[in-house]
């Protein structure tokens, strides 16, 4: 798709593109290229000699039981966040959509968590679930349930999932509400006349018509859980206890920052790049086709 009428200047378009392209090359392509290159290198213990080791870093990574454990954590975390954030948002959006007068009001009452930084969301949740000073954390301990997300790995995982999902619900809510409001009324009325009850109407008509929105949100939520929740984990658990909440991003950060292992950290970067490329490709493929039944 190109415009028919354009300007003839030769130099100007390059000048207009220069800032964006310069930043893209210096801060995106060059570092990404280096990450790929470093992934095939290994430094000796003193950082003096660097040797090309081929796929050895990758082999070592995939043979590391801790890395496999991190992959499992990441899967649990991403699926948990996505499932909770999507289902709560869909429920609220369906209910708000019925109150046509109230929909706008509920929207404003539910969208503000979108503006909260993941790390700030984590701090808010500390005040709910901290075993000594948190409202619910204290109540749980008072009721005889040993609650301490700093000691118990499963509880820590639950905490980071809930805090991350809490923040994402409002984003999903906005999209579900917009999607619901664009479904033609006549379709639903026809079904009502045919005698379909409201629950049945939802699953046979509304939900399928909502599928493009749902699918889009599924990918966005997975990307969010994968990449944007670093702040939640860093503020709440720092990947602990005993690496129970260490995700792939967190591990790449720890290996590069704390352990200063450039080769291994780069190999992880390459793995992560493959994940983004996969997710982006899936998304654009389906956006083009606009999944619709």
């Amino acid at each position: 798709m190109d415009r028919k009428v354009v300007f003839k200047q030769r130099l100007l378009p390059y000048l207009l593109l220069a800032p964006q392209l310069l930043i893209t090359i210096v801060f995106f392509f060059w570092p990404a290229g280096q990450a790929v290159w470093f992934a095939f290198l290994r430094q000796d213990a003193f950082g003096i000699r660097t040797t090309f080791v081929g796929f050895e870093n990758f082999a070592e990574l995939l043979a590391d039981p801790l890395y496999l454990e991190t992959i499992r954590n990441t899967a649990v975390f991403c699926i948990g966040v996505t499932a909770i954030a999507l289902s709560v948002a869909l429920l609220l959006a369906v209910l708000a959509d019925r109150q046509i007068r109230g929909a706008g009001g509920y929207r404003i009452l539910l969208i503000w968590p979108y503006a909260i930084a993941p790390a700030v969301a984590a701090v808010l949740w500390i005040f709910l679930f901290h075993p000594q000073i948190g409202l619910i954390g204290r109540a749980l301990n008072g009721a005889g349930i040993a609650w301490d997300y700093k000691l118990n790995g499963d509880q820590a995982m639950l905490m980071v999932i809930l805090a991350s999902a809490w923040k994402q619900v409002s984003y999903n809510f906005i999209f579900f509400l917009a999607g619901l409001q664009s479904i033609p009324k006549s379709v639903l009325e026809a079904a009502a006349i045919d005698g379909a009850r409201s629950v049945r109407r939802f699953w046979t008509i509304t939900f399928p018509l909502l599928s493009p929105t749902t699918f889009f949100l599924l990918v966005v939520n997975l990307v969010y859980a994968f990449f944007d929740t670093f702040g939640v984990i860093d503020a709440l658990t720092k990947g602990g206890p005993a690496k129970a909440t260490e995700t792939l991003i967190y591990r790449a950060y720890v290996d590069g920052r704390v352990n200063l292992d450039l080769g291994m950290s780069s190999a992880q970067s390459v793995v992560l790049m493959l994940v983004v490329i996969l997710l982006t490709a899936i998304q654009f493929r389906f956006i083009e086709r606009r999944v619709h039944y």
Binding site: L21, I25, F28, F29, A32, F227, A252, L262, S269, L272
Partner: peptide, 17 residues
């Protein structure tokens, strides 16, 4: 080349950047 930066969020190229 601008479009493809979608696939390179800062998280995957932290240390080289």
């Amino acid at each position: 080349s601008i479009f493809i930066t979608l696939m390179l969020p800062v998280e995957v190229r932290i240390f080289p950047t």
